[in-house]
């Protein structure tokens, strides 16, 4: 009985992801305190590769990632960063050993949204537009 439920959930999550993948676009969101309104892909890449760690007003960029084995992250890595998962992970590790603060990990979309809402200078990616007016949308990938 349990195994069955688990199986169903897994399938449904996959399906949801697929549905989202097909239905929802990747959206880059940021905290309301961020002055910029739009970011290019390259700028986002810089940010997520931790090359650029400050906003234009010198406030720190708080980068938010999803856990490394999630579908949305893979999608982000593929669509936005254009880097292999392994390569990205390796890069992050390298940055970690250099003493750079790694991106914060949040597990669910709602957690990401709540985080970005509360933390000044936060940037994250979600699938689908947030319903929150307190969050800026910096980019939307179709």
């Amino acid at each position: 009985m349990k195994n069955h439920t688990l199986l169903i959930l897994v399938i449904m999550s996959l399906l949801s992801d697929v549905a989202l993948a097909t239905g929802n676009s990747m959206v880059i969101i940021a905290n309301a305190s961020v002055t910029i309104n739009h970011l290019s892909l390259d700028e986002i890449k810089d940010i997520y590769l931790l090359h650029n760690r400050q906003w234009s007003d010198s406030s720190p960029i708080i980068v938010v990632n999803r856990p490394s084995n999630t579908q949305i992250r893979s999608r982000f890595e593929q669509q936005v960063l254009g880097i292999e998962t392994k390569k990205y992970a390796l890069h992050l590790e390298k940055m970690h050993y250099q003493g750079t603060t790694l991106p914060v990990i949040q597990e669910s979309t709602q957690a990401v949204i709540a985080f970005v809402k509360n933390v000044p200078g936060a940037i994250a990616y979600i699938e689908g537009l947030p319903n929150n007016s307190q969050i800026k949308v910096l980019m939307e990938l179709k």
Binding site: S108, A114, F115
Partner: peptide
């Protein structure tokens, strides 16, 4: 603890 960061998200995930 790293999970303490979730204070910023009101511990929505209950981590």
């Amino acid at each position: 603890l790293n999970s303490m960061d979730d204070l910023l998200s009101d511990d929505i995930d209950q981590r």
